[in-house]
Design a protein around this nucleic acid. Structure first.
Lengths: 344, 344
DNA sequence: CTGAAAGCGCTTACAG
DNA sequence: CTGAAAGCGCTTACAG
């Protein structure tokens, strides 16, 4: 009773049999006699025996635990992904250890170390905005531990990943703005070192080009928070009348919200004066705004499910074969009032 | 190289010393000579040695891991709490295992089992809506494992808890409605088996009584989702004119949002026709609504911090003494447009 | 059908 | 200053 928890030894002593037999009986090993099994199981139940997973992990060099690193749990998107992971983990008998990088590489490195020490069976990671060096991530692979990136994937490292069609989504969003008659389209973009930001901007860019619409540097502002969205929109509004955009495509919903706030404050009507569309479709937010915000939906829950499934597939291989799957999920254009002009 | 990871044995073999000495050198034990330490540490770094926490956990009967069970991660409130927990856990060298009950007791029971098997050092739990039997929770304490409830605490079990002043918060919210001139105040309430719902309703009830305002059964409807809030508000609006409430106090923000939607659809003005206030103050939502929603703020992040601190305090005791701390944090009334009448 | 023995990786009281 | 030994709780190849 050292740890207060019943062990196999306790059961063995009580029944006057060996620990080995108890162990076998508990896992219904065919060798063990029915009567022994019955005795063991009934005692185990009586004493509320709970196998020590720590010992099992050590024995098997397998913890049945997955390490997750996300920038911040509080975001709707990331908590959806985590839910998706947890969903599959639960049915497959895995536990999850969750760490937040808080967008800081130092913390991401520390998280990686902690999870490695804990011998998680695999990593599911979405990198921080400040992750520009990748040694800690490469280190995971060097140790032969499976790694799957999701959403914010790291192209410098060759491994599995789950992402969405950021380029296509942005292209669709921008094309949609063009279709409803907008001609001067601004973009509030994310940090360019993140592939997702880069791709979204590229989709925006290409949609304009292909529709022979002007690309103007002062219509492209880096902003990915409510506050920055607000400030940037103010800047756009304050451009000389002829140059003022008639639409904004924001890299994510919260930035769009900031922009909307600024537009309203300036007495501009959405979408009549300026149409606006976000990205990621925070379903707990976008439909509830006024006007409801159009966005590009990414299936967060499904991304999580796919990420853990790639991990499960990897560990079911007889051995690491260096073949990596890059799963790319579709996005969906969600049209709401913020891009629905009256004439439609 | 069984597991692909470097072990103490590997270091020992390489240096021709014993594993014991390596172990001591790595933890800077005073007995070990400087030169040995240097050799060990430099080799450890060279080979990128990462101690195996699983083995350490087994050895010490301590995993430095905390188990968290929440109803659902996706809620702003719960992810704030988790962030608060993670924040302290990180600085204190703890890892967190997070499970969701999805509001189902069966899953909560399974989560408890899994975390017990993993020998987490303690539990931080917010119970599900359907948790009416508490054996699985009592079982945690019976095993001498510390348990701290937060937010949705379970009064049948005597242990630490962190909650907020639900009664006072509800009382304040209702009083506020009365102060701005509302006289017929409805309440959208949560499931009554949850203490928080019960307390909020009681605060509402008592505020009305003390202000000599009528309590009417058909003004109190159980609703705690957007959809139910919507439906219930419709019911309230459809009451005979004289009985139609002039204010709604909702058990949480999302229910208030549903109600707002219904009111708007019926052409009613907020707050002029019907004022409305929520609870919990989802800061990613309430301020962005139109009109911005008043609410009662609960400090989610702080709740998480306090919960893990109670756990840390408990395990720092020389032994379990059965003395439990019930921490109750303040709420704050956040007044926004949804309860700000023009005359104010 | 059952048990003794060895080992997963680490730590530490004990001995020298 | 260093090492051999035992043990944390479990599992399994080997032997009988």
């Amino acid at each position: 009773m050292k740890s207060g928890q019943v062990t196999i030894k306790d059961l063995a002593r009580e029944l006057n049999i060996s620990a080995a037999t108890v162990s076998r009986a508990l896992k219904d090993h065919p060798d063990i006699s029915k009567s022994t099994k019955k005795a063991v199981i009934s005692l185990a139940e009586k004493l509320n025996y709970q196998p020590n997973s720590v010992a099992q992990s050590l024995r098997h060099s397998k913890t049945n635990t997955i390490g997750i690193i996300v920038p911040e749990i509080i975001h709707y998107f990331f908590s959806s992904v985590i839910s998706g992971i947890e969903d599959v983990a639960y049915t497959e008998g895995y536990n999850v250890m969750i760490c937040q990088s808080n967008e800081k590489i130092e913390r991401e490195i520390a998280n990686t170390k902690a999870l490695l020490s804990n011998r998680v069976d695999g990593f599911l990671v979405s990198i921080s905005k400040s992750t520009q060096n990748f040694d800690h991530l490469q280190n995971i692979l060097n140790r032969n531990v499976p790694l799957v990136f999701f959403d914010r994937i790291c192209t410098n490292i060759n491994t599995h990943s789950v992402s969405v069609e950021d380029y296509e989504g942005a292209y669709k969003a921008t094309s949609h703005l063009i279709e409803i008659g907008c001609k001067k389209i601004a973009h509030l973009s994310g940090p360019q070192n993140l592939l997702i930001s880069y791709n979204r901007q590229k989709g925006y860019h290409d949609a304009l080009i292909q529709n022979n619409l002007p690309i103007q540097d002062d219509w492209i502002l880096v902003a990915d928070s409510l506050e920055q969205g607000f400030k940037s929109a103010k800047k756009l509004v304050n451009l000389p009348k002829a140059e003022r955009p008639d639409a904004i495509f924001a890299v994510n919903d919260i930035t769009a919200v900031g922009a909307m706030k600024a537009l309203k404050e300036c007495g501009l009507k959405i979408p009549e004066d300026i149409a606006i569309i976000g990205f990621s479709d925070d379903q707990k937010l976008a439909p509830l705004l006024e006007p409801p915000l159009s966005s590009v939906a990414q299936p967060g829950f499904e991304i999580g499910q796919e990420a853990i499934k790639l991990f499960l597939k990897e560990i079911s291989k007889p051995e690491r074969d260096g073949v990596f799957e890059k799963k790319v999920l579709k996005t969906e254009l969600i049209i709401r009032e913020s891009t629905r002009k009256n004439k439609d």
